[in-house]
Nucleic acid binder design. Sequence first.
DNA 1: CATTTTGAATATTGTAACATAAATCAAGTT
DNA 2: AACTTGATTTATGTTACAATATTCAAAATG
Lengths: 193, 193
Amino acid sequence: MIKNKKQHGGLRSGAGRRLNSGIYGEPTKVIRVPKSKVFDIKKYIIHSQAANVFNITKIKPSLSYQPLNLFEHKVSAGFPSPADDHVEKKLDLNEYLIKQKEATFFVRIKGDSMIGIGIHDNDIVIVDKSQKAITGDIVLASIDGDFTVKLLSNNKSKYRLLAANEKYKPIEINKSMQFEIWGVITGSIRKFK
Amino acid sequence: MIKNKKQHGGLRSGAGRRLNSGIYGEPTKVIRVPKSKVFDIKKYIIHSQAANVFNITKIKPSLSYQPLNLFEHKVSAGFPSPADDHVEKKLDLNEYLIKQKEATFFVRIKGDSMIGIGIHDNDIVIVDKSQKAITGDIVLASIDGDFTVKLLSNNKSKYRLLAANEKYKPIEINKSMQFEIWGVITGSIRKFK
DNA sequence: CATTTTGAATATTGTAACATAAATCAAGTT
DNA sequence: AACTTGATTTATGTTACAATATTCAAAATG
């Protein structure tokens, strides 16, 4: 059988994979980076598609708080002294970060699995369980017993959890999975010192 | 002049540039990344040797605050209901994040130039100007009129400002530069919703 | 005729290869 | 003795390449 040809396939228009059909959903570029940063960069880019596993410490919210003075001042040229009296409105960290204090709790994040959305090890996130999570919200959810913080999207009555960058493949939630939304992340705090 | 040779140079041991003598000071690797991330990644890697330029909004600190109830509960197996009564101590966001309220002010960070140390656009950082900045602190400083947030190191009475990763070249502060430390960053907050 | 299988076409993606630049040293030059 | 120069070696950005993935419609199957 030297020339038994023509079996399947063949030239046709429209064949081949689509543009930007890769995991990044956009054109890519090759760059050189220091070896020690490769892991961090990939974590930043790819951002775990699976549920993040992390330890949490729950902290109950403040029971009450009191609005305090807030000075705010736009600076572009010089640095304003903190003593400047350009008072614009009041600011209290509790008030600023908590809307529904009865329904709010804090979770201390352990691990670096959420760096892609700017949440680092030992940060505390503020969770409001009274808010109905809508598309685009960052939520605290549990999937099969693992807690995760992700962007929520729902697509025709199906929940999907997206990584920081919406281009990445979502976690589709199906009936066989234990799934629960614990609340909406409304903020985060970090203590350096 | 067909064979007038031997002019300069020649084989010798020790010639050539040193290992890891490049800008990264370590071996490098080529990776492919999404185009839209190239800029951010380079910013993260190189982490501007010059002062970061960013807009700031100063926010005066709270004038007073009130300790509030804090519930804390370690979780490893199950998720505790926020209604659980495992009160361990008190927590107030102001109290948690502010030590010296008279000397503390807030700065809203504009721009992504400090992502490398986990500070994102629109975050508010808490600055304590009463604390003496010591090696290892993250400080708000101004260099020749540009504000920057960096790790501080001082080396034989010379100040140096380091990027997030200490391997990168520091900014050496010399007498010809305007330089002032405005305070020590003691925390940061972010609001998602 | 409907469904499945198959291979060509096209794109992605990690890695290797390459070209240019930078750095270093000692021989040659002045 | 100081400077110049070119070979040597490494760094670094870009291109090339190989392997994989995806998509389509022709061919095969029933």
